[in-house]
Design a protein around this nucleic acid. Structure first.
Length: 572
DNA sequence: CAGATCCGCGCC
DNA sequence: AGGGCGCGGATCTG
């Protein structure tokens, strides 16, 4: 815990890491609580959920302490609201989750006082008033005790260095997530609403369809001869289609696209408009955009593979259609960067496949495979690699896998071995040591376990094998991305003016698996581009130390997100 | 009637 | 016989 050194009342902006024992102002911002309520908190009196530890040499760029707390999402939003930026932290909940599944960790070292309470911690809710909830839990939990346990478990592991890197990257990701929600994506509601009005018509009263969507529904009804049909009802739509002589098995767009009937066009148009209206329409604006910012809620490592998920705002799935509303502030620009073919590159690095690493040297890995004579076309290369990583067993993709296995034995052998391990019921791990959920555990709770029939059990095993096959690559890609984010975060901070708050400097506003968006003052945009690229190089070195692989970026400097070019397409 | 589940769609 | 997610509406279930 921090020493109790009391100093005068804080400035509005306080660098928490420099203030052991100092008083900071912590707002109970968020939710229905008054965001202006600010309390004085003596750091020495913070609940046991928060501790402080000296940072080891070489652990960070600036030295200084590392804040250790139960959950970044519990503390950091309020600190950010009070103008406090935390340089580094250790998120005990996230890290315990990693360690408790890591095959290279002696699980007995994680047991002890209150250990099961730490296991049971749910992610903090963003609207939870920070001080109340913490006070209740702190009677039981002691961050310093849990921290010591985790440090001990890491130190005793044969994979200590990689695990330490993973935990640091994971914790930094948690800081990034909170900072991105705090800053938000600059969002032009007027642009978004104009787009909605153009495609859907004026905003309808609650419960009604907008005019153009309603007209589209009417066209569908007329063409099917089914007045009163609700196109949103799958059973009704299916029945109406059959009455009209269209024999289809389901109502998916992909299926409708292949039928020959005049209703296909308006029906597909209906589906598209309906999705825009329900997913990213006016209601979405009301709920997720405030103060000219889109503020989704991220869950770092929210998925089993370590990828982020998002439980608010649909941050990880908002369509290209509305990205034109993400517009930089006046005098600012957006730097949009994504990695072309992240997962194949990660596979090359983690497997040490020199042939695939050679193909990865250019901006286009698939073209690199063509140039090396491994495949006839880009398309074949893509099919083969995606097939190998997803477990395709048939069709063109399956055939490509067979041929490429001979050409790239290490890379294709690695995913194949991961699949076989899964089929045997074994867990697998990422390069930095994250373990996958066990076969009987959270991967699939459904009680298919009793040997219903041998066939079902076999299918179950193979599904798990496909999961473990993909896990090793997707999970390691997530680790690379976390390192990229963590390093970029520090670089952006150093780029800003010494006294400027987070939002006054170049800062991350969006992250989506292999893509970042930085909001930056126009005069710093070029410098940001350089830092984004440098961070990608640094991440590659950190994660794939012994087998370097290139991670070239597609970078755009734009006013609107919609202008960002994506030469890499949708692969990986 | 609330809550769980399914479907279809979007993103990677 | 293709991996990971979230979301909204319709439908099913207790």
């Amino acid at each position: 815990m921090g020493d109790s050194v009391h100093v005068p009342a804080p400035a509005p902006r306080v660098h928490l890491t420099r203030l052991p024992g100092e008083r900071v102002r912590v707002g109970t911002a968020g939710g229905e609580h008054d965001p202006d309520v600010v309390e004085d908190v003596d750091l020495a009196e913070l609940p046991g959920l928060v501790a402080e530890r000296e940072t080891a040499h070489g652990e960070g760029p600036d030295g200084g302490p590392r804040w250790v707390w139960d959950d970044t999402a519990r503390w950091y939003p309020a600190l950010l609201a009070a103008g406090v930026r935390v340089a580094r932290c250790h998120d005990l909940r996230l890290c315990r989750r990693v360690l408790s599944r890591a095959p290279a960790v002696d699980q007995s070292l994680l047991r002890g006082e209150d250990a099961e309470l730490w296991d049971g911690l749910a992610p903090a809710q963003p609207s939870e008033p920070v001080l109340f909830s913490a006070a209740a839990a702190s009677e039981h939990l002691d961050a310093a005790v849990e921290d010591a346990r985790q440090l001990g478990a890491v130190a005793a592991s044969p994979d200590a260095a990689r695990l330490a890197l993973l935990l640091a990257a994971e914790s930094a990701s948690a800081l990034v997530a909170a900072e991105m929600t705090h800053a938000g994506v600059p969002w032009r509601v007027d642009v978004h609403e104009a787009l909605l009005t153009e495609r859907l018509g004026p905003r309808p009263p609650r419960g009604a369809r907008p005019r153009l969507l309603a007209e589209c529904a009417e066209e569908v009804r007329a063409l099917l001869g089914s007045p009163g049909l609700n196109p949103d009802s799958r059973p009704d739509l299916l029945a109406a289609l059959r009455r009209a002589g269209v024999d289809v098995a389901d109502t998916r767009a992909w299926t409708i696209r292949r039928i020959e009937h005049p209703v296909a066009e308006p029906l597909l148009r209906y589906k598209k408009l309906s999705h825009l209206f329900t997913t990213n329409g006016w209601a979405w604006i009301d709920e997720w955009v405030s103060g000219g910012r889109f503020r989704p809620v991220y869950q770092p490592a929210g998925s089993a593979t370590g990828r982020w998920s998002s439980n608010g705002g649909g941050a990880l799935s908002f369509p290209v259609q509305v990205r034109s509303a993400a517009v930089a502030d006046e005098g600012w620009l957006l730097v949009v960067a994504d990695v072309a073919q992240l997962e194949p590159r990660v596979l090359a690095g983690m497997s040490g496949d020199l042939g695939l690493a050679r193909a990865a040297r250019g901006a286009d890995l698939y073209q690199g495979m063509v140039d090396a004579g491994a495949v006839a076309s880009r398309q074949d290369a893509k099919l083969g690699l995606l097939g190998a990583m997803y477990g395709a067993t048939s069709g063109e993709s399956g055939r490509m896998v067979a041929g490429l296995t001979r050409r790239y034995p290490q890379a294709f052998g690695l995913v194949e071995e991961a699949a076989r391990a899964g089929e045997r019921g074994q867990v697998v791990r990422t390069l930095l040591g994250r373990g996958c959920p066990a076969l009987g555990g959270s991967w699939d709770e459904s009680p298919d376990a009793p040997p219903d029939d041998l066939d079902a059990q076999d299918r179950h095993r193979r599904a798990y094998g496909r999961f473990t096959r993909n896990f090793v690559v997707q999970g390691t890609a997530a680790e690379w991305a976390s390192c990229w984010l963590a390093d970029l975060r520090n670089r952006l901070w150093r780029l800003g003016d010494g006294d400027a708050p987070l939002e006054g400097r170049p800062h991350l506003v969006f992250f989506l698996h292999d893509e970042v968006v930085v909001h930056a003052p126009a005069h710093l945009a070029d410098a940001v581009v350089a830092e984004v690229e440098a961070a990608a190089v640094a991440a590659g070195t950190l994660v794939f130390r012994e087998h370097p692989v290139d991670f070239p970026l597609n970078v755009s400097v734009v006013r609107s997100y919609a202008e960002a070019g994506k030469p890499g397409g949708t692969e990986s």
